[in-house]
C-alpha cells in the first residue's frame, strides 16, 4: 500500500524501495538519451561504419571511402593554386576529378582488372612492395643500433682511395734501366724518350681507385695500389711490353668515424631494413598461399 501513497518530496526520490514514477521516467529518459548519444557518436565516428556525414578529415565520402582533405589540398596545390586562393569552381573541379577517380578505382576492384591488365598487376606488385618498405622505415633506429650496424659493416664507411699514377710501357730489355732512372727521380717523359718507351695514356690525372681499376685493368691496378707516393713499380710483363707504374700520389681509403658516416649508416640501415621487410613479406605470402605447381615444372 505504501507504493500507492504519494511519496514525500525529496526523501522518497532517494528511497529506492519506494516506487517513484517521475524518478523512473527521468532515469529511463536519461539512460535512453545517453545510449542514443553514444550510439550516434559510434555511428558517425567508428571506422568501417556506414555514415551519413563526411568526417572532418575528408572532403567527400564515395561509397563510404573517404577522400582525404590532405590529398584534396595536395591536388589543388599541384595545379599551382594556393588552396586559400582557389576559386569555388577550381575546388569543385578538383573534387569532381577525385570523386571520379575513386569511383573508377572502386569499379576496377569490382571488375578485378588486376587479373588481366599487366600494367595494373605491375603497379599492384610495386604498391605492396612499397607498403612493406614504408613499414620498414617508420621506426627510427637509435644510436646504439646504428653504431652496431656501423661496426658490422665498417669497411663500407671509408673514403674512396685516390691516386695519380702514370703507366709507361718499355721494351722488356730496357725496363730495368728505365726503372732505375725513374726511381732516381728522372722525369717520365725523359726516361720514356731515352729508353724507347711511351705513356699508355690509360690514366689521366687524379683518379678514384674504382676509375683507376677500370682504366689500368686488375693486374696493373693491384700493383699500383701497393705503391707509396713517389715509388716506381717492378716491371710488369704484358703483351705490349713491360709496364712501369710511376706513383705521383697515392691516398688510400680512409676509414670514416661513426659521426662522419652517420648519415650514410642511417641510409644503409634503412635500406637493409627495407630488404628484410620485403623478404619477410614475400615469405609470409608464400607460406600462407596454396601454390600448386604442374608436375613437369616441379
Amino acid at each position: 500500500m505504501t507504493a500507492t501513497a504519494p511519496p514525500a518530496a525529496g526523501v522518497a526520490w532517494l528511497d529506492i524501495r519506494t516506487v517513484h514514477p517521475r524518478r523512473a521516467l527521468i532515469l529511463m529518459g536519461a539512460g535512453a538519451g545517453l545510449g542514443l548519444v553514444l550510439a550516434g557518436a559510434a555511428l558517425f565516428t567508428a571506422k568501417g561504419t556506414t555514415t551519413l556525414v563526411v568526417p572532418a578529415d575528408a572532403v567527400a565520402m564515395v561509397n563510404q571511402q573517404p577522400i582525404s582533405r590532405i590529398d584534396f589540398d595536395g591536388q589543388l596545390r599541384a595545379l599551382a593554386v594556393d588552396p586559400a586562393k582557389a576559386t569555388p569552381a577550381m575546388r569543385r573541379q578538383v573534387l569532381n576529378d577525385m570523386i571520379r577517380e575513386e569511383l573508377y578505382v572502386q569499379r576496377a576492384k569490382e571488375l578485378d582488372v588486376g587479373l588481366v591488365d599487366p600494367e595494373v598487376r605491375s603497379a599492384m606488385v610495386k604498391a605492396v612492395e612499397a607498403q612493406a618498405a614504408a613499414d620498414a622505415i617508420t621506426s627510427k633506429p637509435d644510436s646504439a643500433e646504428l653504431r652496431g650496424f656501423y661496426d658490422k659493416h665498417r669497411d663500407k664507411y671509408a673514403s674512396e682511395g685516390v691516386m695519380v699514377v702514370r703507366d709507361l710501357v718499355f721494351p722488356p730489355a730496357a725496363a730495368a734501366q728505365a726503372r732505375t732512372a725513374l726511381a732516381a727521380g728522372a722525369a717520365p717523359e725523359v726516361v720514356a724518350t731515352r729508353f724507347g718507351g711511351r705513356d699508355t695514356g690509360k690514366t689521366s690525372g687524379e683518379e678514384f681507385y674504382f676509375a683507376a681499376r677500370i682504366h689500368l685493368g686488375e693486374a696493373l691496378f693491384t700493383a699500383a695500389r701497393a705503391l707509396k707516393t713517389g715509388e716506381v713499380s717492378e716491371a710488369i710483363a704484358d703483351a705490349d711490353g713491360a709496364h712501369l707504374l710511376v706513383m705521383a700520389r697515392n691516398t688510400p681509403p680512409a676509414q670514416y668515424d661513426f659521426e662522419t658516416a652517420r648519415a650514410q649508416v642511417a641510409t644503409d640501415y634503412q635500406a637493409a631494413a627495407v630488404a628484410r621487410y620485403q623478404g619477410a613479406e614475400d615469405g609470409f605470402l608464400r607460406r600462407r598461399a596454396n601454390v600448386l605447381v604442374a608436375k613437369d615444372l616441379k
Partner: peptide, 20 residues
C-alpha cells in the same frame, strides 16, 4: 613552408616508399 605543404610532408614522408 605553407602549413598545407608541411602537413603533406609529415603525412607521406620523403623517400618513404609511400606513393604520395
Amino acid at each position: 613552408g605553407a602549413v598545407g605543404e608541411i602537413e603533406q610532408t609529415i603525412a607521406y614522408g620523403i623517400r618513404s616508399h609511400q606513393p604520395k
